[in-house]
Design a protein around this nucleic acid. Structure first.
Lengths: 198, 198
DNA sequence: TTAAAAAATACGACCGGTCGTTTTTAATGA
DNA sequence: TCATTAAAAACGACCGGTCGTATTTTTTAA
């Protein structure tokens, strides 16, 4: 493998492992060595790929949100005549996976917001942009659903997208300590089957 | 000051500082030394008061929730003919304080749930009980509001209390990284002025 | 097309400092 | 005097980050 390809590969591996460790143990609870051992990358090399643990975490955040955005995007495109249904199916899919993972971890964004959202400027900005991108997509889906007549129009799509994201985050926190998917299920039901409905 | 009184005083001081530090820097982000320096308690003494950092954190959690419970309780008793109004005023009071604190910190429970909710059994149980006590109180207030005709009766008080707590937690996280009280204000408006209303 | 020189990257031992905890010593009160 | 408790000192482990060196790649010149 060429050096450039190896660098790319190592970077990607580090980001993937970073997601797992930061999600399960938090930022300060995770040592670089743990991540490095897991992907067999020497410590010296790490600082050729990333300038610091903090910058690395900011990159991990962006790496984490990508699949969620593309998955929600796919759902919306797949059933573009029923945006609300797409959103429902997307979240139900997430719930199934959370149950498979036995409620470990929750959401990286939520955990990091609470832990370092106020102390690390770099990560704070990364969190801001990650959530903004996610929110914008959700918002466009809700606007679509409004046009299709399935969602109430006396609230802005932005307001509802924010409310859904915030409630979802809170429900994920509850899920972790209750070890039950009830909070996230209730979140989806209350909002998507009731509050948002026309 | 007698030895027993001093012990009590030191314990209390440690708990108060623990709340502040854990809230601002998280569990793993806070060293015992920081807390000890802030209250001028020698490190060796700490282990006379608490058996470990983990147990200390569990105690901090209980110490943290107490004022919130008593304040909400006071509001409910103060205006027992308007439970919904009491809940509204309670949360508005919290929002004012959050703005005064420039959105630093958010909620200790939310932050710790994300950081150590899945890794520390002791703290997980403390978080569980703290939230359960808070939820029960909120639930009784909502039930009262139902009887007074101000809140819809086709949802259980428990379901609404959970939803309010979860959304509030999520909104607090958002508030921290957006540096704005908009999320928490919207949370209260959406639920207390709309979704919960009969 | 080679060989040598230069630049860039990979690497792991090592840095000072801090972590949570334990052990040992000093002080206290009965 | 003698338990009991407070506090100081010490513990090994680990933290994020650096540094000099070894290796690889790229550039240069013949």
């Amino acid at each position: 493998m060429s050096q450039a390809r190896k660098k790319e590969f190592n970077r990607e591996s580090l980001l993937n492992q970073g997601v797992l460790f930061f999600m399960n143990q938090g930022y300060h609870g995770t040592g670089l060595q743990e991540i490095l051992d897991a992907v067999n990358v020497p410590k010296g090399s790490f600082y050729n790929y990333f300038s610091s643990k903090e910058e690395f975490c900011a990159a991990v955040i962006q790496h984490y949100i990508e699949p969620f955005i593309s998955r929600l995007s796919t759902h919306l495109q797949l059933s573009d005549s029923d945006a609300l249904g797409a959103i429902r199916r997307y979240f139900n899919e997430l719930i199934v996976e959370l149950e498979e993972n036995k409620f470990k971890g929750g959401c990286l964004l939520g955990s990091l917001m609470g832990e370092i959202g106020s102390t690390s400027d770099v990560c704070q900005q990364s969190l801001q942009s990650a959530i903004a991108r996610y929110r914008d997509l959700l918002q466009s889906g809700l606007a679509q659903a409004q046009q299709q007549g399935s969602v109430r129009t006396d609230k802005t799509p932005e307001e509802m997208a924010d409310l859904l994201i915030n409630t979802w985050q809170g429900a994920l926190l509850r899920m972790q300590i209750e070890k039950s998917s009830a909070p996230v299920k209730q979140c989806c039901h209350d909002l998507l089957d009731d509050f948002f409905i026309r």
